[in-house]
Computed example of a mutant assay.
Amino acid sequence: MDTIIWIIIIAFFIVSFIGLIYPIIPSVLFLVGGFLVYGFYFSFTELPYSFWIVEGIFVAIIFTADYLANLYGVKRRGGSKAAIWGSTIGLLIGPFILPIIGIILGPFLGAVIAELLIHRKSLNDSIRVGVGSLIGFVSGVLAKTVIQLGMIGYFIFVLLK
């Protein structure tokens, strides 16, 4: 039974990384879910309060990194709050309309459309903002990947202590 539980925990971790690319999957919840499965099956005593505090800080950093990466990418290219919202909406809708390529096109088109329609920017300026949203998305995924690896690494470190 221990092997099955470890397979479930690892599956939760894998789904959490898939969620970095498909934002409809709450990646950090699956990661924490893996920790909870461990605690419920094996023991929460092996995961002290300090573990949960550190992991909670990591979770806050993940949410902050995601928001700041998108904000930085769009703002650096002259985008508005509407472009940030458009990028976020495009990121959520894009993969459903165009599976796989929608992950890239969604935030780009969302930002471009928001700038064109709401702020009446030129096509070139709107495309520049769209590229900024892509840069923000990719840098956010990279940052969250590193943070999630750190969370898993810390989990393993605590278990091996």
Rank of each mutant, 00 (worst) to 15 (best):
G94F: 09
G73L: 12
V74T: 14
P23S: 11
I62Q: 03
F51W: 01
N70Q: 15
Y38V: 06
S122M: 13
V112P: 10
I104M: 14
V112G: 08
V74L: 12
P23R: 03
T45A: 13
I62F: 08
P48Y: 01
V129G: 05
A69E: 08
V129T: 11
S126A: 14
G79S: 10
I104W: 11
I24N: 05
P95F: 03
F30M: 07
I89Y: 01
I101L: 15
H119Y: 10
G79T: 12
A83M: 10
G90Y: 04
A114V: 07
L31Y: 02
L36Q: 04
A82Y: 12
G78S: 11
S133M: 05
I24A: 12
S133T: 01
Y22I: 14
P23W: 09
I100R: 02
L71T: 13
L29T: 09
L47D: 04
G110T: 09
S133L: 05
I103R: 08
G73S: 09
L109R: 10
P48A: 04
L92Q: 01
I93H: 01
D125A: 14
G94K: 05
G90M: 05
L36F: 12
E46R: 03
G106P: 07
G110S: 02
F35R: 07
F108I: 15
E115H: 01
L91R: 07
K81I: 14
K121S: 12
Y22M: 06
D66S: 12
S50Y: 09
V54E: 01
S126M: 06
Y38Q: 02
P26T: 05
G86F: 04
I84H: 02
E55K: 00
L98V: 15
V112M: 14
I89L: 13
G106I: 14
G78N: 07
I113S: 09
Y41C: 08
V59A: 13
D66M: 09
R120Q: 14
G39S: 11
S87Q: 04
G106K: 12
T45I: 10
